[in-house]
């Protein structure tokens, strides 16, 4: 069992080789280049010298950038919590629905993937803007005689709009792993809990949630990490004060033409994502021990 025949090893190398080359060329190499930039400085408009200085990382610790980083973490956390709170009942409803309904309901959850993110974001703008669907609807039923003329709500270009947009984009990523975990859950465990005198809420808290924990953690990771680096949603739905870290990075590479600083910020974002995943891994392991 432990000793693999030579032929098998050859097949393994043949199969693993191309993907490894691909990863090295298009993932590891660009990362190394970016790291080089992050440790360099601008010499002229197009020339970057790799000096090995940590000056760019030091600059990222200035309050203005720390503020953006903090806001990104805060937005990502809020979005993840909102997705979990909305997604859990949805996932439960699908998992506990009659078998013939489940596929259709899952397709409904995945339906947004069929439309390009940019188009979906513009659609959301059409819903939220001052003359948008929500405001028009309220205006339609607004009792102007009592309350005076309707002043459209400011729903777009603020932090709330960014959170709404992020939740809208990320929700399917939360629902799917939750559904997978709840679908695997043995129903007789919930029945046993009820049979032993626990009410529906107690059974949910003590049996359903702990056993769905792998799905909850997977959902949190694949919601939190992409949200932390969200670019399009804050760019289109946010106001001047709702910029997230990805928007700042974008500005360094394009308008500010400061690639070394943009590269340093990119590395900090990546490190934050890694720390978040490591923390979640730690929590999982402690939960199992």
């Amino acid at each position: 069992m432990t000793e693999r025949p030579k032929a098998a090893r050859g097949v393994f190398a043949l199969l693993a080789g191309p993907p490894l080359v691909w990863l090295a060329l298009f993932f590891v190499l660009p990362l190394v280049i970016i790291l080089g930039y992050a440790l360099g400085e601008n010499r002229s408009l197009t020339d970057i010298a790799i000096t090995g200085s940590f000056r760019n990382f030091g600059r990222a610790l200035q309050p203005v950038y720390l503020g953006v980083l903090g806001k990104s973490l805060w937005f990502a956390a809020l979005t993840t919590i909102a997705c979990l709170v909305i997604g859990f009942p949805v996932a439960m409803a699908i998992a506990f629905a009659p078998a013939r309904w489940r596929l259709a309901l899952l397709l409904l959850v995945m339906l947004p993937f069929w439309v390009n993110l940019l188009i979906r974001t513009y659609a959301l703008m059409a819903v939220l803007r001052p003359e948008g669907y929500i405001n028009s609807l309220i205006k339609l039923v607004w009792p102007a005689a009592w309350l005076g003329d309707f002043v459209p709500l400011d729903l777009l270009h603020n932090n709330a709009a960014v959170i709404i947009g992020l939740v809208y984009v990320q929700l399917p990523f939360m629902v799917l792993p939750l559904y997978a975990a709840l679908d695997r859950l043995d129903r007789s465990l919930i029945e046993a809990s009820l049979d032993l005198g626990a009410g529906q809420l107690t059974s949910f808290a003590r049996i359903t949630v702990p056993l769905a924990m792998p799905g909850i953690i997977a959902g949190i990771i694949i919601t939190f990490v992409p949200t932390l680096g969200a670019y399009l949603t804050p760019d289109l739905l946010g106001g001047t004060s709702s910029q997230m870290i990805a928007n700042v990075i974008d500005r360094q590479f394009r308008s500010a033409n400061d690639w070394p600083f943009g590269a340093a910020l990119s590395f900090i974002l990546m490190a934050l994502a890694l720390v978040a995943m490591a923390l979640q891994g730690l929590v999982t392991r402690r939960g199992r021990a």
Binding site: D186, S188, L189, E191, A192, D195, L196, I207, L211
Partner: peptide, 13 residues
């Protein structure tokens, strides 16, 4: 009443 389930339904966690 209490029940012993067919698959036993012991709580794995």
């Amino acid at each position: 009443v209490n029940m012993v389930f067919q698959g036993l339904a012991l709580f794995p966690h």
